[in-house]
Structure formats: C-alpha cells, structure tokens
Simulated assay, not measured.
Amino acid sequence: MPQPPRIALFANTEWYLYNFRLPLAKRLQVELGAEVWVICPDGPYRPRLEAEGFHWISAEVDRRGLNPVRDLTAAARLARDLRKVRLDLLHNFTLKSILIGTLAARRAGTPRIVNAVTGLGSMFSSSHWGRYRLPRTLLEAFLRWTFRNPGTRTIFQNPSDLAQVATHAGHQDRCRLIAGSGIDTDRFHPSDRPSTPPRLILASRLLKDKGIGDFCEAASIVHQSCPEVVFQVAGEIDEGNPGSFSPLELEALKCRFPMVQFLGHRDDMPDLYRQATLAVLPSHYREGVPRSLLEAAASGLPLVAVDGEGIRDIVRHGSNGRLVPPKDGGALAEALLELLVDPSTREAYGRESRRLVVEGFDQRRVLDATFAVYQELGFPPRSDAPERMRVEP
C-alpha cells in the first residue's frame, strides 16, 4: 500500500511550533492523513509535540547571528536525516530555519519547499543597519535565490516584507502573501471587562527592540496622573536572541519602574486579554504581523503600537487604535492617556479590532490559504507515488 504523504514543519524553537503552528500540523494529520514531522531544537515543548503524534527531528539552530560554518554544518546534518525520511514537503518558519532548511532540503532531494518569512526582525531594523549590513545583504540574496526553484514557494506576512525582498528578484510569481499565522477567534474572543482598575498589557519576548523600555517610560508618565492603572508585561527573556534583556538588565528595569508588573511566560493569555483595557506594543523590531496584537484584537481590545511595517496591517490609526513614533515614551504615554479617559472610543476601537481579525486573520482563512500554496506544488502527491523509505532506527 502507498505510504501516507509526509510533511515536516521546521522552526528555530519547539515553543514556536507548539504555540503558533499546532493547528496547521493537526489539520495535516486529520484532513490529509499525513505523517507530520517537526524539526526543531530540543526543549520543554518537544514532548508535547510528540504527544500530539508528531515525529521529531533534532536540529541545531544558532539564533545569535549568521555563522556560515555552523549553519552549513547544521544543514548538512539535517540533510542526512531528510534523506532517511524522504519528505514530500518541507515547510520552514523564521529566517534561520529557512536558510538551514532550504539548503538541507535541496541537498536531500526534497521535492517541495515552502518558506514562511514571519518577519525580518532586528537584522532589517534601520537602527542596526551598520551592524547587520553584510548579513542582511547576503540573506536577501539567498532568499531571492530560492525563488528560482520552481518547487519552492515563499510566504510573506505583510506587503512591505514582500516588496523588500522580492523587488527586482524575478520569479515573484512564486511568492505569496498570507497575513499572520492565524488566530483561533473562538479561543480569543471579547467578554465583559472589569471597569476598574484599568489594565494595560504588553505581550512579547523581552527583546530590547520590542520597546519594553519605552513601555516602562510611558508607564512612569501615566502613573503620575493615573496611579490606579495596572501595567503588565507578559513574556520572558529569550536567551537565544542577541537582542534580549539579560537577567541583570531585567532586574534593573524592575527596580527603576516598580509600577510595571513583569509576569513572565503565561499560558493563560486569553484570560489576560479579557481582563485588559488596552493592548500595547511599542516595537521597532521588523515585525511580520505581531501575533500578540492579533490575539488582543481578536479579544476585542483597542491597540496602541508603533507605526511600522507589519504593525499597521492590524493597527489602523483612528479606527481600532493609535500609532505612535518609535522610541518615544512620551508620545506613547500621551496616546495611552487619551484612550484611558475615553471609554466610548475604546469600545468602538475594540469592536473594529475584532472585526479586522475575524475578516482577515482568522485561523481557518490562514490555514485554507496555506493549503492552497501546498496544492500549487502538488501536495499531497498522487496515491500511486513510489513508496518512500522508512526512518532508520
């Protein structure tokens, strides 16, 4: 009998696959009867992925920068595993996984590759131009090289990223635009909110480019006139990212801004959003479409964020939120104060936030669009395709 189709999802952390791509993996299992493999470094969420029935392949991913020797070695090791598995399709998420995964898949003869650019990150932030100029140029060239392969499709989350990389690249017909990773609008939904105290929530990894410091500065300003307001940061240090706060830096931030509650990692984000008054993201990081803002919008929250690529795809100034200049804690505080004293505007913004997510970012729509990309590449393959090799023990 023919083997079921085989697909692997590759990301730089097991946390990302479990929290953001689990619905895709489960739909592949249920609707296509596919064998689903997850490729990622080991970590706390790896057993959870295996408990869902997915096969795990270990991958080495150095997220602290481009090291050609280390990355090529990781690609060669992954290629050996891919030859054993004989995948029908490899779907890579995040830039480093795209680099390693594409090289490994091409070397292993994997016939179909989908690359999902989930944001261009710090490397493409203007403030890091000097530091990242060479690796940024090399990475753009690599992505454009992948467009030449007819068995590859590249998915971007916002038009700015697509234009940045694909302009004058040729074969732009092999690029697709799919907004975000999909939000479960049944899990994240509006509810009656407590009237007091007002709560401002920022959900993010504790990266400096995410504007954590700007949020704290704005909190200190707002606190002077509205001491009852609660300021919360949900997220933890990302030790694998060179732009992360260190434990010592985080402790210094807590001491300097005692009015801000640092909650650490939370698994109850729907509840936190339902208790919140506003969602904030003063990020000057090169976002795809920020997941935290999408979840907050699905929960019916007004949004306040920095005016930047990806962010303005979900925050419409004067419609469902406010956009402020980057790295400007004073402007952020002003926007927050204006909305804190205007409940009718907050209510209108919250309704519009929910509408935008349901109509443009709902999980079902995103999964349908992703499956359409797979089908362009002929996945799943015909049932009479040659039987593939089994994984060696």
Rank of each mutant, 00 (worst) to 15 (best):
G211I: 00
A335M: 02
A298L: 03
T167W: 12
R382C: 15
E338V: 08
D368A: 12
P282S: 05
V280M: 09
K327P: 03
A276K: 06
A34M: 01
I201T: 15
I98A: 13
T118E: 10
S204G: 08
K327G: 05
C40G: 09
L120G: 01
D342E: 13
Y273S: 06
N320E: 03
H284F: 13
R354M: 03
E31P: 04
L49W: 07
D42T: 15
T13L: 01
D271L: 13
T152Y: 07
A252S: 13
G288H: 01
L49E: 03
N92I: 07
I57T: 08
Q29A: 10
T73I: 12
T167S: 15
V315A: 01
R86D: 10
G180V: 12
G330V: 09
P282A: 14
F361Q: 04
D161Y: 07
C40M: 08
L294S: 09
S292V: 06
P242L: 06
V36N: 11
L82N: 03
H91V: 02
P111I: 05
G33P: 07
F10G: 11
D71K: 13
A59I: 14
W56P: 07
A335Q: 04
L377P: 00
E295M: 04
R346N: 04
E352D: 11
P2G: 09
I212P: 00
A104N: 03
F124H: 01
C216Y: 06
G243P: 04
L82W: 06
V373M: 03
R354Q: 00
L138N: 03
V85T: 03
I100F: 06
N149R: 12
